[in-house]
Write a protein that binds this DNA or RNA. Structure first.
Lengths: 150, 150
DNA sequence: CGATTAATTGCAATTGTGTTGCATTGCTTT
DNA sequence: AAAGCAATGCAACACAATTGCAATTAATCG
Protein backbone atom coordinates (compact mmCIF):
# COMPACT_ATOMS: atom_id res chain seq x y z
CA UNK A 1 0.00 0.00 0.00
CA UNK A 2 1.33 3.41 -0.94
CA UNK A 3 1.98 6.11 1.62
CA UNK A 4 -0.66 8.34 0.09
CA UNK A 5 -3.20 5.59 0.41
CA UNK A 6 -2.38 5.13 4.05
CA UNK A 7 -2.82 8.82 4.64
CA UNK A 8 -6.08 8.75 2.76
CA UNK A 9 -7.32 5.88 4.86
CA UNK A 10 -6.32 7.62 8.05
CA UNK A 11 -8.08 10.79 6.95
CA UNK A 12 -11.14 8.81 6.01
CA UNK A 13 -11.05 7.17 9.39
CA UNK A 14 -10.75 10.50 11.11
CA UNK A 15 -13.59 11.92 9.09
CA UNK A 16 -15.60 8.89 10.02
CA UNK A 17 -15.00 9.61 13.68
CA UNK A 18 -16.21 13.15 13.17
CA UNK A 19 -19.23 11.93 11.30
CA UNK A 20 -20.02 9.56 14.13
CA UNK A 21 -19.77 12.37 16.61
CA UNK A 22 -22.38 14.30 14.67
CA UNK A 23 -24.63 11.31 14.18
CA UNK A 24 -24.53 10.49 17.87
CA UNK A 25 -25.86 13.95 18.62
CA UNK A 26 -28.48 13.79 15.88
CA UNK A 27 -26.83 16.37 13.69
CA UNK A 28 -26.89 15.72 9.97
CA UNK A 29 -23.24 15.57 8.93
CA UNK A 30 -22.92 18.01 6.08
CA UNK A 31 -19.46 18.83 4.76
CA UNK A 32 -19.71 22.27 6.29
CA UNK A 33 -20.43 20.86 9.70
CA UNK A 34 -17.66 18.32 9.43
CA UNK A 35 -15.24 21.10 8.62
CA UNK A 36 -16.32 23.19 11.58
CA UNK A 37 -16.24 20.20 13.90
CA UNK A 38 -12.76 19.30 12.68
CA UNK A 39 -11.60 22.80 13.51
CA UNK A 40 -13.13 22.60 16.98
CA UNK A 41 -11.55 19.22 17.66
CA UNK A 42 -8.13 20.43 16.63
CA UNK A 43 -8.19 23.71 18.48
CA UNK A 44 -6.51 23.81 21.88
CA UNK A 45 -8.63 26.63 23.17
CA UNK A 46 -12.18 27.85 22.78
CA UNK A 47 -13.00 29.71 19.58
CA UNK A 48 -15.23 32.62 18.79
CA UNK A 49 -17.39 33.09 15.75
CA UNK A 50 -15.08 35.67 14.24
CA UNK A 51 -12.02 33.48 14.80
CA UNK A 52 -13.79 30.70 12.99
CA UNK A 53 -14.67 33.13 10.25
CA UNK A 54 -10.99 33.92 9.76
CA UNK A 55 -10.05 30.27 9.60
CA UNK A 56 -12.33 29.61 6.66
CA UNK A 57 -12.21 32.80 4.69
CA UNK A 58 -14.59 31.52 2.08
CA UNK A 59 -17.39 30.58 4.40
CA UNK A 60 -20.20 32.90 5.30
CA UNK A 61 -20.35 34.15 8.86
CA UNK A 62 -24.04 33.39 9.20
CA UNK A 63 -23.54 29.78 8.21
CA UNK A 64 -20.90 29.40 10.89
CA UNK A 65 -23.15 31.19 13.34
CA UNK A 66 -25.99 28.81 12.66
CA UNK A 67 -23.69 25.81 12.71
CA UNK A 68 -22.48 26.77 16.17
CA UNK A 69 -26.03 27.34 17.36
CA UNK A 70 -27.01 23.90 16.12
CA UNK A 71 -24.01 22.30 17.78
CA UNK A 72 -24.76 24.05 21.03
CA UNK A 73 -28.41 23.14 20.99
CA UNK A 74 -27.52 19.50 20.40
CA UNK A 75 -25.01 19.65 23.25
CA UNK A 76 -22.03 18.89 21.10
CA UNK A 77 -20.35 22.14 22.17
CA UNK A 78 -20.83 24.60 25.00
CA UNK A 79 -20.59 28.37 24.97
CA UNK A 80 -18.37 30.34 27.31
CA UNK A 81 -18.84 33.89 28.37
CA UNK A 82 -15.30 34.88 29.14
CA UNK A 83 -15.77 38.60 29.57
CA UNK A 84 -14.39 39.41 26.16
CA UNK A 85 -16.93 40.81 23.79
CA UNK A 86 -17.29 37.61 21.83
CA UNK A 87 -18.78 34.35 23.07
CA UNK A 88 -16.41 31.41 22.74
CA UNK A 89 -17.28 27.81 21.96
CA UNK A 90 -15.61 24.53 22.83
CA UNK A 91 -16.39 20.84 22.51
CA UNK A 92 -18.31 19.18 25.28
CA UNK A 93 -16.96 16.15 27.05
CA UNK A 94 -18.36 12.75 26.30
CA UNK A 95 -21.90 12.32 27.69
CA UNK A 96 -22.16 15.96 28.66
CA UNK A 97 -25.69 17.15 29.26
CA UNK A 98 -24.60 20.68 30.07
CA UNK A 99 -26.16 20.41 33.52
CA UNK A 100 -24.37 22.30 36.32
CA UNK A 101 -22.74 19.08 37.46
CA UNK A 102 -21.34 18.45 33.97
CA UNK A 103 -19.79 21.87 33.69
CA UNK A 104 -16.20 22.85 34.29
CA UNK A 105 -14.21 25.96 35.00
CA UNK A 106 -12.73 28.11 32.24
CA UNK A 107 -9.69 30.34 32.17
CA UNK A 108 -9.41 33.46 30.07
CA UNK A 109 -5.97 34.93 29.48
CA UNK A 110 -5.89 38.71 29.55
CA UNK A 111 -2.73 38.71 27.48
CA UNK A 112 -3.31 36.36 24.54
CA UNK A 113 -7.09 36.54 24.92
CA UNK A 114 -7.40 32.78 24.63
CA UNK A 115 -9.89 30.83 26.70
CA UNK A 116 -9.20 27.34 27.98
CA UNK A 117 -11.41 24.58 29.31
CA UNK A 118 -10.16 23.31 32.66
CA UNK A 119 -12.01 20.07 32.16
CA UNK A 120 -10.50 18.54 35.27
CA UNK A 121 -11.79 21.30 37.46
CA UNK A 122 -15.50 20.86 37.95
CA UNK A 123 -17.64 23.64 39.28
CA UNK A 124 -18.37 22.98 42.95
CA UNK A 125 -21.97 22.85 44.06
CA UNK A 126 -22.79 25.89 46.15
CA UNK A 127 -25.59 26.67 48.53
CA UNK A 128 -27.34 29.57 46.96
CA UNK A 129 -30.64 30.75 48.45
CA UNK A 130 -33.23 28.07 47.70
CA UNK A 131 -35.58 30.61 46.17
CA UNK A 132 -33.28 30.74 43.15
CA UNK A 133 -33.62 27.87 40.71
CA UNK A 134 -30.31 27.40 38.89
CA UNK A 135 -30.25 25.70 35.51
CA UNK A 136 -26.68 26.35 34.49
CA UNK A 137 -23.58 28.06 35.74
CA UNK A 138 -20.67 29.90 34.16
CA UNK A 139 -17.36 30.20 36.01
CA UNK A 140 -14.39 31.91 34.41
CA UNK A 141 -11.07 32.87 35.90
CA UNK A 142 -9.22 35.75 34.31
CA UNK A 143 -5.49 36.24 34.49
CA UNK A 144 -2.35 35.08 32.72
CA UNK A 145 -2.26 31.67 31.11
CA UNK A 146 0.52 29.09 31.16
CA UNK A 147 1.85 30.12 27.75
CA UNK A 148 2.02 33.81 28.54
CA UNK A 149 3.50 33.47 32.03
CA UNK A 150 7.10 34.61 32.47
CA UNK B 1 -38.76 72.44 62.45
CA UNK B 2 -40.99 72.03 59.44
CA UNK B 3 -41.48 68.69 57.77
CA UNK B 4 -39.96 69.96 54.57
CA UNK B 5 -36.86 71.03 56.42
CA UNK B 6 -36.49 67.63 57.98
CA UNK B 7 -36.75 66.02 54.59
CA UNK B 8 -34.23 68.46 53.21
CA UNK B 9 -31.81 67.66 55.99
CA UNK B 10 -32.26 63.96 55.46
CA UNK B 11 -31.67 64.37 51.75
CA UNK B 12 -28.62 66.46 52.41
CA UNK B 13 -27.38 63.84 54.80
CA UNK B 14 -27.93 61.13 52.24
CA UNK B 15 -26.16 63.11 49.58
CA UNK B 16 -23.36 63.63 52.01
CA UNK B 17 -23.06 59.90 52.46
CA UNK B 18 -22.86 59.45 48.72
CA UNK B 19 -20.27 62.17 48.48
CA UNK B 20 -18.23 60.47 51.15
CA UNK B 21 -18.41 57.22 49.27
CA UNK B 22 -16.94 58.90 46.23
CA UNK B 23 -14.29 60.76 48.19
CA UNK B 24 -13.21 57.58 49.92
CA UNK B 25 -12.52 56.04 46.54
CA UNK B 26 -10.78 59.13 45.21
CA UNK B 27 -13.50 60.02 42.77
CA UNK B 28 -14.30 63.69 42.38
CA UNK B 29 -17.98 64.00 43.33
CA UNK B 30 -19.62 65.78 40.43
CA UNK B 31 -23.39 66.06 40.37
CA UNK B 32 -23.50 63.58 37.53
CA UNK B 33 -21.59 61.01 39.49
CA UNK B 34 -23.69 61.54 42.58
CA UNK B 35 -26.78 60.93 40.52
CA UNK B 36 -25.44 57.73 39.05
CA UNK B 37 -24.21 56.51 42.41
CA UNK B 38 -27.60 57.24 43.96
CA UNK B 39 -29.23 55.12 41.30
CA UNK B 40 -26.79 52.29 41.91
CA UNK B 41 -27.33 52.41 45.66
CA UNK B 42 -31.09 52.29 45.29
CA UNK B 43 -31.27 49.55 42.72
CA UNK B 44 -31.94 46.05 43.98
CA UNK B 45 -30.21 44.34 41.08
CA UNK B 46 -27.28 45.02 38.82
CA UNK B 47 -27.81 47.56 36.06
CA UNK B 48 -26.57 47.78 32.51
CA UNK B 49 -25.49 50.88 30.70
CA UNK B 50 -28.65 51.01 28.62
CA UNK B 51 -30.86 50.58 31.66
CA UNK B 52 -29.08 53.50 33.26
CA UNK B 53 -29.58 55.45 30.07
CA UNK B 54 -33.32 54.91 30.27
CA UNK B 55 -33.43 56.05 33.89
CA UNK B 56 -31.98 59.44 33.08
CA UNK B 57 -33.35 60.22 29.67
CA UNK B 58 -31.55 63.51 29.50
CA UNK B 59 -28.07 62.22 30.10
CA UNK B 60 -25.71 61.18 27.36
CA UNK B 61 -24.90 57.51 27.09
CA UNK B 62 -21.18 58.15 26.76
CA UNK B 63 -21.09 60.13 29.98
CA UNK B 64 -22.73 57.27 31.79
CA UNK B 65 -20.35 54.85 30.12
CA UNK B 66 -17.33 56.80 31.30
CA UNK B 67 -18.82 57.27 34.75
CA UNK B 68 -19.21 53.52 35.11
CA UNK B 69 -15.68 52.94 33.83
CA UNK B 70 -14.34 55.38 36.41
CA UNK B 71 -16.34 53.78 39.19
CA UNK B 72 -15.14 50.35 38.19
CA UNK B 73 -11.52 51.39 37.95
CA UNK B 74 -11.70 52.93 41.42
CA UNK B 75 -13.32 49.75 42.73
CA UNK B 76 -16.54 51.39 43.76
CA UNK B 77 -18.51 49.04 41.53
CA UNK B 78 -17.84 45.72 39.85
CA UNK B 79 -18.91 44.49 36.45
CA UNK B 80 -20.76 41.26 35.89
CA UNK B 81 -20.84 39.25 32.73
CA UNK B 82 -24.14 37.51 33.05
CA UNK B 83 -24.37 36.04 29.58
CA UNK B 84 -26.78 38.66 28.36
CA UNK B 85 -25.37 40.90 25.73
CA UNK B 86 -24.87 43.83 28.07
CA UNK B 87 -22.44 44.01 30.96
CA UNK B 88 -24.10 44.76 34.27
CA UNK B 89 -22.72 46.79 37.17
CA UNK B 90 -23.31 46.72 40.90
CA UNK B 91 -21.86 48.36 43.99
CA UNK B 92 -18.92 46.70 45.66
CA UNK B 93 -19.05 45.76 49.29
CA UNK B 94 -17.18 47.81 51.85
CA UNK B 95 -13.41 47.37 51.57
CA UNK B 96 -13.67 45.35 48.39
CA UNK B 97 -10.48 45.11 46.40
CA UNK B 98 -12.06 42.99 43.70
CA UNK B 99 -9.61 40.19 44.37
CA UNK B 100 -10.93 36.66 43.88
CA UNK B 101 -11.44 36.29 47.63
CA UNK B 102 -13.57 39.46 47.70
CA UNK B 103 -15.85 38.33 44.94
CA UNK B 104 -19.25 36.74 45.23
CA UNK B 105 -21.59 34.69 43.10
CA UNK B 106 -24.20 36.27 40.85
CA UNK B 107 -27.54 35.02 39.64
CA UNK B 108 -29.06 35.91 36.31
CA UNK B 109 -32.76 35.29 35.80
CA UNK B 110 -33.62 34.00 32.35
CA UNK B 111 -37.15 35.25 32.74
CA UNK B 112 -36.94 38.85 34.00
CA UNK B 113 -33.34 39.24 32.84
CA UNK B 114 -32.31 40.74 36.14
CA UNK B 115 -28.98 39.96 37.73
CA UNK B 116 -28.51 39.75 41.48
CA UNK B 117 -25.47 39.83 43.73
CA UNK B 118 -25.45 36.89 46.12
CA UNK B 119 -23.16 38.76 48.46
CA UNK B 120 -23.40 36.09 51.10
CA UNK B 121 -22.17 33.41 48.74
CA UNK B 122 -18.47 33.86 48.22
CA UNK B 123 -16.68 32.17 45.38
CA UNK B 124 -14.83 29.14 46.74
CA UNK B 125 -11.10 28.90 46.12
CA UNK B 126 -10.40 26.20 43.58
CA UNK B 127 -7.27 24.33 42.67
CA UNK B 128 -6.67 25.27 39.10
CA UNK B 129 -3.39 24.24 37.47
CA UNK B 130 -0.64 26.33 39.03
CA UNK B 131 0.60 27.46 35.63
CA UNK B 132 -2.45 29.69 35.40
CA UNK B 133 -2.26 32.93 37.35
CA UNK B 134 -5.77 34.04 38.25
CA UNK B 135 -6.46 37.69 38.98
CA UNK B 136 -10.22 37.66 39.10
CA UNK B 137 -13.10 35.31 38.70
CA UNK B 138 -16.65 35.57 37.40
CA UNK B 139 -19.26 33.08 38.54
CA UNK B 140 -22.85 33.39 37.41
CA UNK B 141 -25.76 31.04 37.85
CA UNK B 142 -28.55 31.21 35.33
CA UNK B 143 -32.09 30.13 36.00
CA UNK B 144 -35.27 31.50 37.53
CA UNK B 145 -35.08 34.06 40.29
CA UNK B 146 -37.09 34.26 43.49
CA UNK B 147 -39.51 36.83 42.06
CA UNK B 148 -40.24 34.91 38.90
CA UNK B 149 -40.63 31.48 40.54
CA UNK B 150 -44.20 30.14 40.44
C1' DC C 1 -12.15 88.73 40.89
C1' DG C 2 -10.68 87.36 36.17
C1' DA C 3 -7.83 84.52 33.32
C1' DT C 4 -5.66 80.16 32.44
C1' DT C 5 -5.61 75.36 32.68
C1' DA C 6 -7.46 70.84 33.56
C1' DA C 7 -11.28 67.74 34.03
C1' DT C 8 -15.84 66.53 32.76
C1' DT C 9 -19.70 66.16 29.72
C1' DG C 10 -22.16 66.02 25.14
C1' DC C 11 -22.45 64.97 20.26
C1' DA C 12 -21.36 62.50 16.07
C1' DA C 13 -19.64 58.75 14.21
C1' DT C 14 -17.42 54.07 14.02
C1' DT C 15 -16.44 49.28 15.20
C1' DG C 16 -17.70 44.62 16.07
C1' DT C 17 -20.87 40.96 17.50
C1' DG C 18 -25.02 38.93 17.06
C1' DT C 19 -29.24 38.37 14.49
C1' DT C 20 -33.16 38.06 10.98
C1' DG C 21 -35.31 37.64 6.27
C1' DC C 22 -35.20 35.95 2.06
C1' DA C 23 -33.26 33.94 -2.13
C1' DT C 24 -30.58 30.06 -3.68
C1' DT C 25 -28.50 25.74 -3.57
C1' DG C 26 -28.36 20.98 -2.74
C1' DC C 27 -29.93 16.70 -0.85
C1' DT C 28 -33.97 13.19 -0.11
C1' DT C 29 -37.88 10.94 -1.15
C1' DT C 30 -41.21 9.19 -4.00
C1' DA D 1 -37.29 13.71 -12.87
C1' DA D 2 -40.22 16.54 -9.67
C1' DA D 3 -41.48 18.04 -5.24
C1' DG D 4 -40.29 19.13 -0.75
C1' DC D 5 -37.29 20.23 2.92
C1' DA D 6 -32.94 21.38 5.07
C1' DA D 7 -28.75 23.91 4.61
C1' DT D 8 -26.17 27.72 2.90
C1' DG D 9 -25.19 32.47 1.17
C1' DC D 10 -26.16 37.37 0.77
C1' DA D 11 -27.89 41.73 2.36
C1' DA D 12 -29.31 44.24 5.84
C1' DC D 13 -30.24 45.47 10.59
C1' DA D 14 -29.99 45.92 15.91
C1' DC D 15 -27.47 47.08 19.51
C1' DA D 16 -23.48 47.39 22.87
C1' DA D 17 -19.11 49.31 23.24
C1' DT D 18 -15.92 52.69 22.01
C1' DT D 19 -13.26 56.81 20.07
C1' DG D 20 -12.40 61.73 18.70
C1' DC D 21 -13.36 66.14 19.21
C1' DA D 22 -15.98 70.20 20.60
C1' DA D 23 -18.25 72.51 24.39
C1' DT D 24 -18.89 73.13 28.98
C1' DT D 25 -17.86 73.15 33.81
C1' DA D 26 -14.71 73.10 37.72
C1' DA D 27 -10.14 74.09 39.85
C1' DT D 28 -5.93 76.91 40.16
C1' DC D 29 -3.24 80.81 40.29
C1' DG D 30 -2.03 85.61 39.78
Amino acid sequence: MEIVEVVAVKLAFKMNQLENKLNTKNIKPTSMRLLVLKQLVESKSAVSLSELENTFEKVDKVTLYRTLKTFEQKKLIHSIDDGSRAVKYALCEENCECEPEDQHVHFHCENCEETFCLTNTGIPALNIPSSFKAKSVNMVYKGICANCAD
